[in-house]
Amino acid sequence: MLKMLILRIIQSIPVLVIVGAVVFSIAVALPGDPSLIILGENAPEVERQRIRLELGLDRPVLVQFGDWMFKAVQGDIGKSYKTGEPVVSVLAARIPVTLQLAFLSMLFAVVVGVPLGMIAAIKRNSWVDAVVSVLSVSALAMPFFWVGILLIMLFTLKLRLLPPFGYVPFSEDPVQNLRFMIMPVLTLGSAYVALVARQTRAAMVQVLSSDYIRTARAKGASELRVVTVHGFRNALVAIVTVIGLQFAGMMGGAVVTETVFQLPGLGRMITNAIFDRDYGLMQGGVLVVVLGVIIVNLLTDMAYWLLDPRIQR
């Protein structure tokens, strides 16, 4: 186990370097000059030249990249071009917001999606199955911003229950924090409820039609036992896969959701950084997201290892 874990961590290093290179090249290729962003449209050329020198933008691109990577390895991923703040401290403030959003959305998706998928699989081809299927497709088809706006119309304008947008850290005021989080979580989670439900249904249908389920029935095991101990247990690998894989997609959804609900998370930070040509901040943000995806993939692999005895050793 430990050996596999170490191996996987070593394997993720090249991934990080490649992603770093891609992000860096995009930043270079993007039109717009950071010096203009910092100094404003009408800054004199001399001043702009000074800024460029300060940021090291006059050096060859490869040197800039090497320098950035070298520092990144040491934990210094530069400063925000716009505010001069260290990127690390900006990220430290943003990461918890996105983490909370992603975690709660995933929780919502699993808590609602898994039972729905199981019921649909057990009652396959019944009206229950049809309803779950139609709801899933609808939820998947609706864009995040649209769901968000609908929710605001319902919970804020109509029912006057929830604040439309804003954010308070959980540590300051847990109740208010959760009130702010409800709609973003519903927005981001709805699509994943659908994905998880569909994947659960598919996996359960496949498992329930296998021979060893018939064996379990022949043993005299109760239907509940057949469905849970033999059915769900064996479908779990497939369900965990979809949850792990969808984490990367969820980061994309977080960008939109955070924008709609004005959450100060990573997604919105990266969007703003791109608009501001704040390459330093953007690179840091993307790097953190990639790191997150790599970690989740690692966790997914470890979950396989725990769930499927055939993978062991």
């Binding site: 296998s210 021979d211 060893y212 018939r214 064996t215 379990a216 022949a218 033999h230 247990r233 064996n234 769930l307 499927d308 005895p309 055939r310």
Partner: peptide, 15 residues
Amino acid sequence: QIIFQDPYSSLNPYM
């Protein structure tokens, strides 16, 4: 009780 034809698929692989 019953003995099935296929000894590969009739045993739960995770048990």
